[in-house]
Design a protein around this nucleic acid. Sequence first.
DNA 1: TTATAACTTGACCAAATAGTCAAATAATTT
DNA 2: AAATTATTTGACTATTTGGTCAAGTTATAA
Lengths: 219, 219
Amino acid sequence: MGNGIVAEKVRSSTRSKEKIREENERIILIAAEKVFAKHGLKGATTKQIADMAKLPKSNIHYYFHTKLNLYRCVLESILVDWMKAADTFNTFNEPREAFRYYVGAKMDLSRIRPFGSKVWANEIISGAPEMEAILSSRLKKWVDTCVGSINTWVELKKISNVGDAHTLLYMIWATTQHYADFEYQVKILNNGKRLTDEEFEEKKQQVIDLVLRSVGLNP
Amino acid sequence: MGNGIVAEKVRSSTRSKEKIREENERIILIAAEKVFAKHGLKGATTKQIADMAKLPKSNIHYYFHTKLNLYRCVLESILVDWMKAADTFNTFNEPREAFRYYVGAKMDLSRIRPFGSKVWANEIISGAPEMEAILSSRLKKWVDTCVGSINTWVELKKISNVGDAHTLLYMIWATTQHYADFEYQVKILNNGKRLTDEEFEEKKQQVIDLVLRSVGLNP
DNA sequence: TTATAACTTGACCAAATAGTCAAATAATTT
DNA sequence: AAATTATTTGACTATTTGGTCAAGTTATAA
């Protein structure tokens, strides 16, 4: 027992300042993502975030200064993952593979990082006051590229004429993110039990099939 | 000008108590729906709701006592419209018509009452603390009926095998509600301009077509 | 070892806010 | 007309909460 405490002390005393900052910022970001997801920007309190991170409240302010700044950092960190999933869409030339992998990646993200998706949803629902700039630049550009690909596939008769390609993209976003944002509703309608990994994989395949059929491709 | 004031005075002085209560409750509910949609339960302040309703704050408390009670009333009033749209699904025996009208009704609701949809979304995202009971009773029952219909259609080979029918329902909900909950994002990606009525009707038709194809029906 | 810079944390404060209350006014009943 | 009941509203309060600060501790550089 004594050894354990000493060992911990030693390890702690050798943690470099750099590592300390890195680790604490990570811990705080993870805690903040959860709390913001549940309560929104205004509803979340720095005390709640501190408790979740198991740190004193002053520490949160030390590392992130204001609640709003912390919130922005959370949004940015979510965007990184989001853009990674987005990239998968453009790494395939054939619509079947592009949709299959993109929808799959979005579903995985909903499963792995549901809190991030919820924070994002909250932000958009409340008018995207902090994210409008990013949406109308980075996201817009990515969407324009996707719309181009989809339109080409329609012209080449590789998929059905879906009208405005945005409609299709929105359907994919909405459907995949539903499993993160509305997971409590999904849980309730699954007899109160959270989807198991197996059930989720099944859902993922079904969503992929629905999307493929919706553009006239046979799964 | 003088006449206007007098006329108003007279009309006001003949307003019955019953009408006064009815009208004020309506005004407050509409204002609250907007404010709750934008800021969530905790983020919304009774002052904001009062200002939106053009009434003093005390008046809000006089009619609804607490903020939480007002919030519950807003949720309930949304549920009424929601269930009306839900009914359309079971008034058709053929899948093509059922999906067409149900998806249409949900899209219309997103257009007409976007704030209600947002309040609902916020509630589910934050864990449905006020609505869990309703979800696991009324909504669950309705969903079970729908799932039954869909499964029958699959058995009769009227639509493709969609696997778990819940997946399809979630896709419909998510896609239609996206136009309410994420309307700011839709606006930004539509070059900053809100969808016109004509554009929305087009989207509605495209969403219907996507859904029909997704279950193997030719639109 | 010493000096310095970075991290930790409890105590504190000013602003915001849900809810109360009492006094005034308006509708309704007797 | 008087009494009663319902509505209106400004003033007030207790509590919550974002943010500060100063005093202490720990790592690092000189």
